[in-house]
Amino acid sequence: MLKETTPAEAKDRYLREKRTHVSQKTLHNYTAALNAFADWLVNNGYLDMRDVDSNVIEQYKDYRLQKVKPITARNDLWTIKGFIQACERYQAVSLGTYDLVQPPQVRPEDEICDDVLTREEAQAILEHLEKFEYASLRHVIVLILWKTGMRIGGLRALDVGDFDGDRPALEVRHRPEQGTPLKRRLNSERDVLLTDSASDVILDYLDTSRPSVTDDYGRKPLIATDHGRAARTTITRHVYGSTRPCFYSNSCPFDDKPDPENCEATSWNMASKCPGSVSPHALRRGYVTAARNAGQPKEITSERVNMSGKILEKHYDKGTHDEKAERRKEFLKDI
């Protein structure tokens, strides 16, 4: 017999269960998707999960497809499908509802994001930072993300003690009980070697710029602000700000150039509004592409950035057809 359960009650129970074994980023994504679904249910008069059937979910799917990109709608519906499966276990919806949830199909090209920072852009940004903001927090953030292809969660998880200046290397470790889980948990743990020049910047940052702070667990975060371990939003804003063309080239390449005095994208909170700025993930894609173009084997690149070769090829390697042909050139034999 089904039990009376509000969308909010079912959602909260499901998220409590997920909180024990998924990363913070995954939990955030689940929360956003289910908040939107629960709000839509209530706003459309579905106040009890017993009223939710496949027809209701199809209505929501149509609604969502009108509001977001197909890939986002698909990801949301996969989250909802898992949620509905749990609701069957809670006796909140009828058995079999899960099997009737059909996330939308998307074209292969819709699955791929082309947002990428090029090697030339990264070099220009790092040259600007080395000249004007040497060994600053922003400099270290961009430097590590570009030189290692690291995820933002991995960067944020680093402690001062995880930097080995002798090798030199960064030791990425999974510490979920202390607020810094890694995306693939223990499978994400690895040591990432650095060049001597990158190591020198980090050493100077530790000597001159890093505030003497600890986090809530008494650890010394490498990427730190006056308030402790830098938040994901802080890291993201530094990347958006530093990848604006006007920041590192002192010019705006866009046809509809705004008045610099009135351009909203020049502010700390609005840098993402610049059409030329990119997110931290674009540096990860850029690193993968640049490394492969430089001849670094796929297997080495995959291990360094902690992703499968299949994912690397499909979503991260943004080399052109010409660049990929050149990579194969030295291996070709005349037969």
Rank of each mutant, 00 (worst) to 15 (best):
I311N: 10
D207W: 05
P260R: 11
A230Q: 03
Q85W: 10
Q296R: 10
N269H: 12
A157T: 07
T289F: 12
F132M: 09
E109D: 14
E133Y: 11
A169F: 04
E111S: 12
N55Q: 10
D62F: 07
K257Y: 00
A282K: 01
T243H: 08
L194P: 02
N55A: 07
L283D: 03
D114A: 13
Y14F: 15
H281K: 11
R284T: 06
R232H: 11
Y134K: 12
D39E: 14
T243I: 11
L77N: 10
G218K: 06
R50Y: 02
A86N: 05
T180K: 14
T320V: 08
D256F: 07
D48V: 08
T118M: 09
E326F: 03
A157V: 09
A231R: 07
L15Y: 05
H321E: 14
K81C: 05
G241Y: 03
G154E: 15
K131W: 00
S308W: 04
R328T: 10
L65V: 03
V42Y: 00
L2S: 07
T20I: 05
L15N: 03
M49T: 02
L158Y: 06
Y240P: 01
P221Q: 07
E88A: 06
L2E: 04
T208K: 09
V101I: 15
D166Y: 06
I112N: 04
K131N: 12
E323T: 07
T266M: 09
A86F: 15
N44C: 04
I57A: 04
V305N: 12
P168D: 06
A135L: 04
N29P: 00
L194S: 08
K25C: 02
K61W: 03
T289N: 08
F254Q: 06
L332G: 01
V142A: 12
P211W: 03
Q59W: 02
K81W: 11
L137H: 05
P176W: 11
T148F: 02
D115R: 15
Y205P: 03
T26W: 07
K131H: 09
N269L: 13
F132V: 12
V68Q: 01
M150I: 06
K318H: 15
T214P: 02
I125M: 08
N29K: 01
H139G: 02
E109F: 04
H281R: 07
L34M: 05
L155R: 01
P70D: 07
N29E: 09
E58V: 08
I80H: 00
L27T: 06
A124T: 14
R107P: 00
A265S: 15
P108F: 07
R292P: 02
K333I: 15
R184W: 13
D115Y: 00
C252M: 03
T79K: 14
A294N: 10
L100W: 01
I235N: 00
A124E: 14
E121W: 01
D259K: 12
P221K: 02
G286H: 09
L193S: 13
R138D: 07
C87F: 00
T72Y: 09
G165P: 08
T234S: 13
E109K: 14
C113E: 11
I125T: 01
L170T: 14
T31G: 04
V172A: 10
T97V: 14
I223L: 10
E261L: 13
P253F: 04
E4K: 14
L77Y: 12
Y316K: 05
V106D: 00
N262M: 13
C87N: 14
Q91G: 00
S199Q: 05
D226Q: 14
L332M: 13
